[in-house]
Write a protein that binds this DNA or RNA. Structure first.
Lengths: 277, 277
DNA sequence: TGAATAGTGTCTATCAGACAATATCAA
DNA sequence: TTGATATTGTCTGATAGACACTATTCA
């Protein structure tokens, strides 16, 4: 089999032959080939993994971007990610691998969950590439993302991407939008906010997470009691204290609950025109 | 290229050569090949689409299952689904196609959303098959699922699958569990419950949805006002009425809101031992 | 008329949000 | 001492759940 550079020209990856070359429009009424059609076999696709890595930088929700080194979209900002390494690599393992390669982050301490799969046929000009996106939540880190393959990784405020002020390669803007939306929702019913914090944190640090991700302002006094009223959300972490200017605050760490009861309801939802009857 | 029957023996679908044959264990510390490694190209995988179709039958949350006609797991119950038809078929379109093929349901009237992607390397003995699962919500239908390819489709109570009383092929039990969990959660914050109902419905029918999916009993009087207090959730559908035995009920249809404010909070969460501090 | 279901009224314990007041640190 | 942040207290209007009661149909 001849060697070829990947990324230079469109892929012709289907190794199976069709009875008729498929015309690439979508017709839901067409009957699919069945297993008894001797000449048909399922088409293969390329599988990629992309990462939406969220963190708080300077009290703003931020996303890790890398500059693409090759075509297509060379030079454009994009999500970190890449193809499966070999055909039997687990999806989550591939996400963890990309995380350590492209961002030098230690996956074992981070929140990582599957976000969604993006498979629009024309999303990658090289051919049929289906991407499984993962959402990663990281605590604020020392400024530079050290020792990465893609040395040109950088944090971008999520708002710049959501507003369209910064354009990303492929369909990565949509993926970021979905990732931020997922994070905003999970803040209400899961302890996800603690994943933005260090192992121990103060209640006001936790509040900053909610304020940055939701884009709202919360009353510190009500927030203080509200989070403590949720059983298993946060637990006291000894008597140590952390101080900047004012009175030192108690330290807490994440509890063991995975769902919050009662939930922390997001205030002031865009509740527009009353349209009920 | 020789023709071969699909499903008879393991696939050797990777068309690219590796520098070293991959050993199929997961090592997150291994460096992946980079684009500058001339001899490496991304591996291809087979992509399938599986459907978790939920409905209410006899006031019970039920899942549509089909009996597998071929190996592996021949004769076992499984989720409806199948491979992409051709390499440029859109994922959602493939889900809609499977829906009409395997269940004869009209996708244009149903709720359909992506659920998750399942890609454990050994989940399919035929080779590397990655499956994108979709969640479908259907209103109660006339008994038989007519005119299907897999004529042996049938509804199974979700509880039988969640409890392990009924085993499914592949990792489909896990997929069903995730689908039911997704539905249970979305009932709180989205109008998903209306997708279980006909175009018009009574409030007590809507209540039955909540009771069946959540597995709880609700007070009809409080439920009655609660749902109407959510702006845009349900809107009155004229003055028509529907009656069985007692007083006829007003009819409603789904409103235009996609999120519910305030949410309908699920009662009595398994709130176990108090573990706070 | 009685059974059954739909819909309304009302009470109460609890909660969310507003905000005053106090505590404890650094400079 | 002052400024800043943390923590506690208290008040008030809204709400969730319990449940009595009325309304409207069919058998």
């Amino acid at each position: 089999m001849p060697r070829r550079r990947f990324g230079d020209e469109p892929l012709d990856h289907p190794k199976w032959t069709y009875r008729e070359p498929p015309s690439c429009h979508i017709d839901i009424n067409v009957r699919s080939p069945t297993m008894s059609d001797e000449s048909w076999s399922p088409p293969a696709v390329l599988l990629a993994v992309d990462l939406v890595i969220l963190t708080l930088r300077d009290s703003r929700l931020s996303v890790l971007l890398v500059e693409r080194g090759i075509e297509p979209h060379q030079g454009d900002p994009a999500l970190p990610g890449g193809f499966l390494q070999h055909s039997c690599e687990d999806l989550r393992a591939a996400a963890i691998r990309e995380l350590s390669e492209e961002s030098a982050l230690d996956a074992s301490r981070l929140h990582l969950e599957q976000l969604g799969t993006y498979g629009t046929p024309d999303r990658d000009p090289r051919g049929r590439v289906v991407s499984v996106a993962y959402l990663v939540i990281a605590p604020a880190l020392p400024e530079p993302i050290a020792g990465t393959d893609a040395a040109d990784a950088s944090w971008a405020p999520a708002e710049e991407i959501l507003s369209g002020a910064r354009r990303l390669a492929f369909d990565h803007e949509e993926i970021v939008t979905d990732g931020v939306e997922r994070a905003r929702n999970k803040l209400e019913h899961s302890p996800l906010a603690t994943a933005f914090c260090d192992r121990t944190f103060t209640i006001s640090q936790l509040q900053q997470v909610y304020e940055a991700v939701w884009g709202v302002e919360l009353d510190p006094r009500n927030f203080y009691r509200k989070v403590q009223a949720v059983p298993g959300f946060i637990v006291s972490a000894g008597t140590e204290r952390r101080s900047t200017r004012g009175r030192p605050a108690r330290l807490f760490r994440a509890g063991s609950r995975t769902t919050l009861h009662p939930p922390l309801v997001r205030p002031d939802p865009p509740n527009p025109e009353e349209e009920e009857r």
